[in-house]
């Protein structure tokens, strides 16, 4: 039996397109960045519930893989990788992003707020501090900015990805908002 897939993956900030077919213990097709695609022809065998073996030109690679939603977690030689399946349109959104907010990098306690609405902060200036597992993480300004809004109070729990500070946009600043 032969099965095929066409996917766009993101891995460590790179975007890779795969068009692959599995048949008779081999994985064949193409893999590449945008228009530069290389041919793929490798051995591929499943060894167990999470384990696979790839044979790449005589080099044997054992990998463990578990898929969770649109993420495939891959472990090779002790190193853990996150391969993310890219949704159509996601790339365009990412390319246009200059975000007007700062989010919490982890779930934890908001230990300190260094700014308030109206604060003018230079690039690299401290915005807020999140504490989890007794480690502190300082979130800094990604650029020169003016703080529009502060969400959350010191001492409260915040989730990973939660917006803590929003910035005034260029349009806001022009109108003096």
């Amino acid at each position: 039996m032969s099965r095929a897939l066409r996917r766009t993956y993101r891995l460590e900030g790179r975007r890779l397109e795969a068009a692959l077919r599995a048949a008779e213990g081999r994985l064949t097709g193409t893999l590449g960045l945008d228009s530069e695609h290389a041919d793929v022809d490798v051995g591929a065998r499943r060894l167990g519930p999470t384990q696979l073996r790839l044979d790449l030109d005589g080099r044997s690679v054992r990998a463990h893989v578990v898929r969770d939603g649109d993420t495939a977690w891959v472990s090779i030689e002790g190193r853990t990788y996150q391969v993310v399946l890219e949704e159509p349109g996601a790339r365009a959104a990412a390319a246009g992003a200059e975000e007007d907010f700062a989010t919490s990098p982890m779930t934890g306690t908001l230990a300190k707020l260094a700014v308030e609405p109206g604060s003018v902060v230079a690039e690299g200036g401290e915005l807020f501090v999140v504490e989890a597992m007794k480690m502190e993480y300082v979130v800094k300004a990604p650029r020169d900015l003016t703080v529009a809004e502060v969400r959350g109070a010191v001492g409260t729990q915040i989730e990973q990805g939660a917006v803590v500070v929003t910035f005034e946009t260029a349009a806001d600043e022009e109108t003096g908002a």
């Binding site: 795969a18 793929v40 696979l52 990998a63 891959v74 090779i76």
Partner: peptide, 9 residues
């Protein structure tokens, strides 16, 4: 490449 190939496989 083996990382992507492992995920695909």
């Amino acid at each position: 490449d083996e990382v992507i190939l492992a995920a695909a496989a």
